[in-house]
Nucleic acid binder design. Structure first.
Length: 205
DNA sequence: TGTAAGATCCTA
DNA sequence: AGGATCTTACAT
């Protein structure tokens, strides 16, 4: 068993179509480093892609103050506030001037942050089961908008562990592809992926 | 300057 | 099924 962390995901790796990257991010690790240096890790188990010709994408019409980071280069965090309450974390993809991103919708956390345990009566698997919940669990808010995903910074990504890739190659793990959740536009685009048997997925089907 | 909708989540 | 809660985008 290899206990070393896989290599960090680079901006170059993320400089491709969001619809190609979104399924490949399943099984990769999101790392959140707090200001005190402590780290929390979660395996990504659910993603959604947002693309240029996609009416559901925030930058579909034109650049605005909120969506401008999606017009920049790949490898940057796009964080926004939804319903005045929750935050959502996206990874900007593709090259500059091509607005696109992958929404991280659920994580399987390996360690529960201590500020989550007492107040939440959530089962551990459900603590980061949803885009708003994972941002709450890892203290991700607007302060992290436009942050590059880089080791040692507040946020970064790591490639799949070899054992995860092997399980995928042997069809012992599989992905499910479905339509996206919570939208009123682009509802028929099948751009959501999740790890089929994961208990940490926001919802199945 | 006003207003309707929103890539959510929890409770009833 | 409804409410919390408030920013954003677009219309006036």
């Amino acid at each position: 068993m290899d206990f070393n962390s896989p290599s960090p995901i680079t901006a170059q790796w993320l400089s491709r179509d969001s619809t190609q990257i979104a399924p490949e991010l399943i099984g990769c690790t999101l790392v959140r480093q707090m200001p005190d240096g402590s780290c929390f890790r979660g395996v990504i188990v659910e993603t959604e892609a947002y693309a240029p010709e996609d009416p559901a994408m925030h930058a579909y019409r034109r650049p605005t103050a909120r969506n401008r980071v999606m017009f920049g280069a790949a490898g940057i965090a796009y964080v926004y506030l939804i319903y005045g309450i929750y935050h959502c974390l996206n990874i900007v993809t593709d090259r500059a001037e091509i607005p696109s991103a992958v929404l991280i919708r659920a994580l399987q956390l390996d360690t529960l942050p201590d500020w989550i345990t007492p107040p939440q009566s959530l089962k551990p698997d459900r603590v980061a089961a949803g885009p708003g919940k994972l941002c709450r669990a890892l203290k991700i808010d607007l302060a992290l908008n436009a942050t590059p995903f880089q080791p040692g910074q507040g946020l970064w990504l790591e490639h799949r562990y070899p054992w995860f890739q092997q399980q995928m190659d042997q069809d012992k793990l599989s992905l499910t592809q479905t339509t996206r959740i919570g939208l009123t536009k682009g509802v028929d685009l099948p751009w959501r992926w999740y790890l089929t048997d994961s208990p940490a997925v926001s919802r199945k089907g």
